[in-house]
Structure formats: C-alpha cells, structure tokens
C-alpha cells in the first residue's frame, strides 16, 4: 500500500493505492491521523480511493477511527472515487449509510464540495 498526502487550502487530499489490510491499516491509521491533526480546524480530509483495491475489516476500522477523530477535532472526512469492490464492503458494513463521512463519485466532486480551489 502507498499513501501520498497533498495539502491544499482547507483540504488534505490523501491518495491510497493498493490494499488496506491489517498491516497496511496500522500504517494508514498512523499517517492519516497525524495528517488530520496537523490540518487546520475546519479542514476536510479527502481520501482518493480510486486506486484502493481492497479493504479488510481492519481497513474499515481505520475509516471509522478517522471519521471519529475528524468529528471530535472539528474537521470532516470525505471519501471519493471508490471502486465497486470497496464500495460493496462499505455498503455491507453500514458505513455508507451511517452519515459519518461523505462519499463522492469523483475527487473533483469532493474538492468542489469542500470548496477547494
């Protein structure tokens, strides 16, 4: 798994490539929590999931933990461009219905919703 983080005004744009399994989720949680906490209050973290091919139950917990941390610290979380196999896992776990992060069909739509230039 590879993670790259791009900082824009009011947005942390995170691209996750590969598989978010147990081992990868440990690294992802650490990196993304640090990025979230270092972003300005009110910022949105957008996860570009277009190259994310797999999520295990550990990966789902990473997303829920991030959403929790975002809410607690006055930031927000969005996930964009989810592949169908990952979308299925999000749907079955109930995460898509839980209103704890917003889902966008594309990264551009997520950036626009966050008001990013």
């Amino acid at each position: 798994m590879d993670i790259s983080i791009e900082q824009r005004v009011g947005v942390e744009l995170v691209r996750i490539e590969g598989k978010l399994d147990f081992q990868a989720s440990i690294e992802a949680t650490e990196k993304l929590m640090a990025a979230l906490q270092s972003s300005p209050p009110g910022a949105t973290m957008i996860i570009d999931a277009s190259a994310l091919s797999y999520v295990s139950s550990a990966g789902l917990r990473t997303l829920l933990t991030l959403a929790k941390s975002a809410q607690t610290s006055g930031r927000s979380l969005a996930v964009a461009a989810v592949q169908p196999s990952v979308q299925q896992v999000l749907d079955i776990s109930g995460l898509t219905k839980a209103n704890i992060f917003t889902l966008h069909p594309t990264v551009d739509a997520a950036l626009q919703a966050a008001g990013a230039p």
Partner: peptide
C-alpha cells in the same frame, strides 16, 4: 440501525 455494528464481523 445507523450507527451500530459498523463492522463486517459484527454485521
């Protein structure tokens, strides 16, 4: 229903 068992094992 919205917030419980947000986990594939628990579901």
């Amino acid at each position: 229903d919205e917030v419980s068992s947000l986990d594939i094992v628990a579901k």
